[in-house]
Design a protein around this nucleic acid. Sequence first.
DNA 1: AAATTCAGCGTACACATGTAAGCTAAAACT
DNA 2: AGTTTTAGCTTACATGTGTACGCTGAATTT
Lengths: 206, 206
Amino acid sequence: MNKSTTRAEQKELTRRTIIDAAFRLLSADQSYANLSLREVTREAGIAPTSFYRHFKDMDALGLTLVDEAGLTLRQLMRQARARIEEGGGSVVRTSVTTFMEFVETNGNEFRLLLRERSGTSKSFRLAVQRELQHFVEELSDYIEARTGANHVTAYYEADALVTLVFNAGADALDLSPSKRILLADKVVQQLRYVAKGSESLRNHKC
Amino acid sequence: MNKSTTRAEQKELTRRTIIDAAFRLLSADQSYANLSLREVTREAGIAPTSFYRHFKDMDALGLTLVDEAGLTLRQLMRQARARIEEGGGSVVRTSVTTFMEFVETNGNEFRLLLRERSGTSKSFRLAVQRELQHFVEELSDYIEARTGANHVTAYYEADALVTLVFNAGADALDLSPSKRILLADKVVQQLRYVAKGSESLRNHKC
DNA sequence: AAATTCAGCGTACACATGTAAGCTAAAACT
DNA sequence: AGTTTTAGCTTACATGTGTACGCTGAATTT
């Protein structure tokens, strides 16, 4: 325990190298599911067997990636909320724009979440679900506070909103930038339907 | 060209055997993507190389499966519409119930669509998209005729409805029957938000 | 009856995979 | 200074893969 833990430091560094390598290998044509341990270590520049010094197996690495991707997304959305509080444009529009920016600049992180949400590993599916649930709950609280809607209603509404946005993100992946704008317009409109419909069914007047 | 094409018949029969074998191998734990040619032929009871007598490669088989799954779904929904026309309960409720039944009884067909929608093959993604588009357009026409909404509005609304139902189906896959009922309630409510919101924003009165 | 087609098979090969076993050198601890 | 720990390496093996090649016998055509 002398000056600085050079050993542990190096280990952490290699661990990061592996994680970064894995992210780098994800693309439209390669999902985490068909990514092999050897590919990852090749990209990371280490021996295949060295992988095990850092992760129990590919599943463990995958769950780490899901966590990181979720974290990135959450940070971005928090940033969007800050922009909103400071009085920037419409809540809906800003949120959608931010999310679409995430999809555009972090396409492979998003693809990971998107694909593993319906993948063959239950733990992966649960991990992604947890990330999404996070957004639904936050949004639900926001709606409840803002509109005074009852708990269940707010939750249903938030869930629908998140679902629509997430799916639009998935669609965006295969679209040209110009068509993405149209897509954004579509989803903004759809979110308004949900918000308005929820409100309208709440106050049965008229 | 004598009595009956025994040769072509047999070929078609084997083709079906392969298709059925492939469907049988799909499950919560196995996606089409990580299904090997050899696994399929083993299940079908033919030699690996015989596969090529029927399909160019696994992609060709996969696209066939997507088509068949889409067809099954479409038939079920048509049947639901018949039930509705005959005056059975709510349009929304009946549609959701029918879809949920499809997910329950044809889980693996649905999983195929769900997974390949975001898979690594663009042609698969497009194939699934086409199936979904089919529903959106049909529903869009229905809404336009029924409510007199403008073309774009009806389309946006239909798109949102299909997205919500499809996603609920995905969630249903990992749930117990009792929780599926709650899920169905949720999605029914969400669909009503969309319908009501769309209508409400259309007639700006009140 | 003779010739042709072809669905299905067996063999074979080159390749990629996950991971077990054991070594090494440097870091960390005593 | 001596001992222990350990990140990373090399080698090795068993297993699964896609598919090329050529055969066979029966169905079909001539």
